[in-house]
Amino acid sequence: MSFSFPILPGGHLLAIEGLEPPHIGALLELAESYALLNRSGKTQRDLLRGRTLINLFFEDSTRTRTSFELAGKRLGADVINMSVSTSSVNKGETLLDTASTLNAMHCDLLVVRHAQSGAPALLSQKVAASVINAGDGTHEHPTQALLDALTIVRRKGRLEGLVVAICGDVLHSRVARSNIHLLSAMNARVRIVGPPTLIPAEAARLGVEVFHDMRRGLDGADVVMMLRLQRERMTAGLVPSPREFFRFYGLDAEKLGWARPDAIVMHPGPMNRGIEIDSAVADDPERSVIGEQVEMGVAVRMAVLDVLARDLKRNA
């Protein structure tokens, strides 16, 4: 597949916000072809041969890190995992010290997860490598939104016109922000559903409809996207208890009945069963596409690495 324009301007993937629909469409198309390749059992190990990909994770994440690792290896890159516990970051080294170390290592592709919003953007200003944001604070998680979109397209055939309800802790969710930007850009109708204490300020200005009532929020939804509610949100008093949250905002079969009969259920993982989602729904093969999301994650990350590697060649 060849593209007549740079898919990721700037040579990094830091956010969905700012990407144009043709860019998103091209990435999804390429990812779809990788999904088919992966299912066929073939590999394409020459594409990133000789390239070094470093997974730099300042926050634990087995799922995302493994997904990037697999994507890199399937394209032939040398993949190195660095996590906080094994690096000098715990010894007082700053983010920018880390950047100069990475420059000295001649890393080509840098996958960064960090607890602070904007940390990958800061790194991208200081490293020679192409930076991929693998989740920064409460800002964005762009590859998650891309894999969610690919999963939806494969099930529903399109994004345009679909009603997507993003439910739960939107305030702290980088997944929600990236999905809102991507789905809005592709003309889906995005709703966010949650208690007012977990909805960000001026959320409607992002182009979404805000609901505090699950029944109304899920009414007519084609896609129900649940978000993870972290335990510390409860200790901070933003919601009074797990049982109260589950009663009003946890997705169970009854609440799912308010959505369209063919609505699919998504979750970025890891799930808190019995808090934001009931196992009966999460494990329902008819409705839940949670397993497929993980599969599409590898394909989407291969597509992103592919596109950035093309830019690396272009600039070489």
Binding site: S117, G118, G137, R177, P200, A201, E202
Partner: peptide, 15 residues
């Protein structure tokens, strides 16, 4: 400052 910009940047807001 809490508002649209802080929401977009993923920054905790001060009303």
């Amino acid at each position: 400052t809490e508002g649209e910009l802080a929401t977009r940047l993923g920054l905790p807001g001060i009303p």
